[in-house]
Amino acid sequence: MTTLKEKIKQAAGYAWAAAAFAAALAALSSHEGIGRGIAATGLRISPVFSGGELARTINRKGYSVFIHRPVFDALLREKKEGFVQVDWGPAEALPARLSETLDLDGDGRAESILELETAGPEVKLRTEDCRVGPAEKPLLVEKARTVRLYQEPEPPSGPADMKKITVRITLRKSCAAVK
């Protein structure tokens, strides 16, 4: 004999299974809306990949220099050593040779000079500041391929529709962090 309690448990079990399936179907059919909700929470792609938010733009003749904020990001506290990403674009408008005086830490004082051939892979960093350097090899970043339906709060790595040359330069919080 099935008791009333068992019958209720039976019904509750089936109701749970049916409700979970219904909720899943609803979530699947409205995933784009839910996705927009997730984006609205302010989550962004880690600056370790994106290079960090744009801090300053310097406009030159026909092209611009995009300097990103220093990335020291870690899970809880900041790291002692990070990097600053600098982009030049549009790549098509760049002169054959770039020489840029840079204020990487944003303290209002330029501390480094970066020189590179736009056609070649080499980069030269000149600085007196022991917190700065070395610079990674320059990278030619193609235009964004994806049509972004809903733009993230921060465009990753500056203007997405621009082909650019990117260099990441190591920056430390203090000279004590130099290995």
């Binding site: 996705g35 997730i38 989550l43 962004r44 792609i45 880690s46 990949f49 994106s50 994806t146």
Partner: peptide
Amino acid sequence: SKTIVFPGLITGGFASIAVLTVFWAA
């Protein structure tokens, strides 16, 4: 840290992180 440690799209495009999260949760 309010960051996604993957170089993908949070929303939109092909196989975004938000859509995958919704599929996974469902």
